[in-house]
């Protein structure tokens, strides 16, 4: 089923040819993060693709993956260009190394999953929360419900995890 929805006043859509993306976001809508696992080499991959980037296999199955990891890098946007985000600055776009499959198949590889810093109910984080996050911050996945069959995976500070003494932040606040 194709999806047409609005998020922050921004139109989001997936047509019914988007087989892999529809499956990915359907799991997210159930607040149950899944990635494709290759049927031949068993490696997980992100974002969704038709073939395995490690062995070119076409066969994969969706498997549950724990949404926990650490911030690998980020950008903190102060001047939004998309109208949807202008009321929400500063906002963080986080690139998060999942704990699962970290450093595989080579030491330089990781499942790096994009998301905004959000509150535990999936709303864009307030400025005081943005200031607490940097490279190394431990985060857990939360979801922003958009429409039936579509939720966006997001990240929030993992209060149960041991955090670095001082996550690395760009020196100028």
């Amino acid at each position: 089923m194709p999806i047409q929805a609005q998020y922050l006043g921004m139109p989001l859509s997936l047509d019914d040819l988007e087989v892999e993306n529809l499956a990915f976001f359907k799991h997210c809508a159930e607040h149950d993060f899944h990635l494709q696992a290759c049927a031949d080499c068993n490696l997980l991959r992100y974002p969704p693709t038709t073939a395995c980037p490690w062995c070119m296999s076409r066969d994969a199955k969706w498997v549950p993956v724990e949404g926990k990891g650490a911030v690998h890098s980020y950008t903190e946007v102060h001047h939004a260009i998309q109208p949807a985000f202008k009321a929400h600055t500063p906002y963080l776009v986080l690139l998060v190394d999942l704990d699962r499959q970290l450093g595989k198949p080579t030491e330089h590889d990781a499942l790096r999953v994009v998301g905004n810093l959000a509150t535990s109910d999936g709303k864009l984080a307030p400025p005081e929360m943005v200031k607490r996050v940097g490279i190394g911050t431990r985060v857990r996945m939360v979801f922003t419900d958009v429409a039936p069959g579509l939720a966006l995976p997001q990240w929030t500070i993992d209060d149960t995890a041991k955090q670095p003494d001082k996550p690395w932040r760009y020196p100028q606040e």
């Binding site: 921004m10 989001l12 859509s13 890098s73 946007v77 985000f85 776009v93 994009v114 490279i135």
Partner: peptide, 27 residues
């Protein structure tokens, strides 16, 4: 409108060249 694979980037306010490249710059 944001569609297809752009849901993994533009839906997060991650769109302009500066926004897209900054994780490399910061790292």
């Amino acid at each position: 409108p944001v569609s297809s694979d752009m849901l993994h980037s533009r839906a997060y306010g991650w769109q302009s060249a500066g926004q897209m490249f900054s994780p490399t710059f910061l790292r």
